[in-house]
Amino acid sequence: MTAAIDADNLRKSYGDVQALDGLSFTVDAGEFFGLLGPNGAGKTTFINTLVGLARLDGGRAEVFGFDVTEEYREVRDRIGLAPQEYNVDRFFPIREVLEHKAGYHGFSSEQASERAMNALETVGIAEKADTRFDWLSGGMKRRFMLARALVSDPDLLILDEPTAGVDVQLRRDLWSVIERMNAGGTTILLTTHYIEEAERLCDRVAIVDRGRKVEVASPDDLTARGTDTIDVGLADPPATAPEFAHDGIVDARMEDGRLVVTARGSGTVIPDLFRELDRLGYEVTDLDIRRASLEEVFVDMTRQEEAVTQ
């Protein structure tokens, strides 16, 4: 099956700034794929190269087998983009804006009108069809940007920080909309600073920094590489932590009369930890486990990348 996105050794610079520095990865058709990275990592530049707003200095990118430079029209017809910034004609009713957008993609006037209303209904603002963009609330503006991306019935939906600045309820409403789109077969590329969003939605994520790929994996696979915290209550706690000879244990210390163990793969560490504590004569009274989060793994990986490049 042809990949939805195939990026190979992408390079793009703006003066002395190397925005993309050999970036490579693929996104499968039908996948919900996240692009994570700190500000300035190259995420928006990557998106701009796909939609024709930036021209690559080197490398090759394809969308469903079409080259983004040589076959721009075929690529653009397959992409729906909801950018982070508002770039909307503010003086027309939003239904007309969507009708014009559908017209650019070859739909007849009748089809464009139908598609516009369908898109507004999908995001829950059909009752605002005759309202100008400027008169919408902040949350409705975010919904409209998603509707505009959907109106052309894209094969690839690109969402650049789609829930930035919205309240928790609206964020979850938008999650439901885009999850339904993905379940219907639409490939989705998401950039976000909300790590919870990536954990909830994405099949895989690419962590990028300084225009380079740091890692590509599922959220579960990435969090499995982090460290869990095992907080153990002991009936007669010692002043200093016992020494444990276990490959999975990174650190053990006493904090406020409790044994705090940092470990990788806590599921395999805990039985051995209990056996060792029993052998040493300690009685366990309670146990609390805090699993590694994708956010912690993300921060750790980007810090390591920064250290390598300095």
Rank of each mutant, 00 (worst) to 15 (best):
L174K: 01
L174Y: 05
L174T: 01
L174V: 05
W175C: 06
S176L: 13
S176R: 15
V177S: 08
V177L: 10
V177Q: 07
I178F: 01
I178V: 14
I178N: 00
I178Y: 00
I178S: 00
I178R: 00
E179C: 04
E179S: 14
R180I: 04
M181Q: 15
M181W: 02
N182K: 12
N182G: 13
N182M: 11
A183Q: 15
A183S: 14
A183M: 13
G184S: 12
G184F: 05
G184D: 13
G184K: 09
G185P: 12
T186Y: 08
T186G: 11
T187L: 10
T187P: 02
T187C: 10
I188Y: 00
I188C: 09
I188M: 06
L189Y: 02
L189T: 05
L189W: 01
L190G: 00
T191F: 09
T191Y: 07
T191W: 07
T192P: 11
H193G: 13
H193C: 11
Y194P: 11
Y194Q: 07
E196G: 09
E196R: 05
E196H: 06
E196D: 15
A198W: 05
A198E: 02
A198Y: 03
A198P: 09
A198H: 04
E199G: 04
E199L: 03
E199D: 15
E199T: 11
R200P: 02
R200H: 14
L201Q: 02
L201E: 01
L201H: 02
C202R: 01
C202Y: 01
C202S: 07
C202P: 02
D203I: 01
D203Q: 11
D203M: 06
R204K: 13
R204I: 04
R204L: 09
R204S: 04
V205R: 00
V205F: 01
V205H: 00
V205T: 02
A206F: 03
A206Q: 09
A206D: 10
I207D: 10
I207E: 10
V208P: 06
V208C: 11
V208N: 05
V208E: 03
V208G: 07
D209E: 08
D209W: 00
D209K: 00
D209I: 00
D209N: 14
D209C: 06
R210C: 07
R210T: 10
R210I: 03
R210V: 03
G211T: 14
G211R: 12
G211I: 13
R212V: 12
K213Q: 15
K213P: 01
K213T: 14
V214W: 03
E215N: 04
E215A: 14
E215I: 12
V216W: 08
V216Y: 07
A217Q: 07
S218N: 09
S218R: 08
